[in-house]
Amino acid sequence: MLNILVSIKQVPDTTNIRINPDTGTLIREGVPSIINPYDIVALSLAYQLKLRFKAKVTVITMGPPQAKNALKEAVEFGADRIILLCDRKFAGADTLATSYTLAEAIRFLQREELFDLFLFGKQAIDGDTAQVGPGVANRLGIPVITYVVKIENLDPIHRKIVVHRKTEKGIEVLEAPFPILLTCEKDLSPLPFVPLENILKAQRAEPETFNAEGPLSFQRDKLGLKGSPTQVKKVYTPELKRIGKIYNLDDVSLDDVVSKILDVLRERDLL
């Protein structure tokens, strides 16, 4: 049986994100939380693998109590076990503290059962660092393949996987034995239309909650804000500078505008 761990993050829906100009912080009010879209890809992949192979899927997240909703949604994707890392002491974590906390929790879970595949989104859309997946792999001492765009082959018997990885120069085709951590690019897996059974199951699902006190022990100084060397000094929206001229077709004729555009393009030797 394939044993899969998926790590997800609940993020504000950044399609309509706003920043408070006075404080420089995110306005969270009225902004719905969603599962990070790349993590949805990871969940979708786990779902597809579950359809094809016999697989068990464990989903973990770290976040405030409402992150529970992200885990419930993970059950729609067929998660068999959901775990919430939730404690005030975990709060304010940067990527270093986050990967420490996640890696410790995963290590704890691995005392019971070893995972073959670790699926992470390539990055979260609120921080965009792409560091947590590799950070966890490093701490667990397992190999990592980032920016995976395709699973070419997965062989549960010989326990290995062949994947395509996107790089700046092109696609790398890599083969790796289990265990392996993959970070998922958006085209890796289509979004499944999950059965009613899963939807109903998700509604009543309750995660197991781990906090700073247990069931595992953490090094306090590596948790949350304390364990985070990154300090956010300022967040701001870069000013949009429009240098283009706008002509209103009520004032100027279309022909005039077209010839003006042509003039500018010629002026700059673009035509």
Binding site: L51, F193, V194, P195, L196, E197, I199
Partner: peptide, 13 residues
């Protein structure tokens, strides 16, 4: 409904 019945049964539930 539009959703399949279960993982095994793809017919609309």
């Amino acid at each position: 409904v539009d959703r399949p019945t279960s993982l095994e049964d793809k017919t609309p539930a």
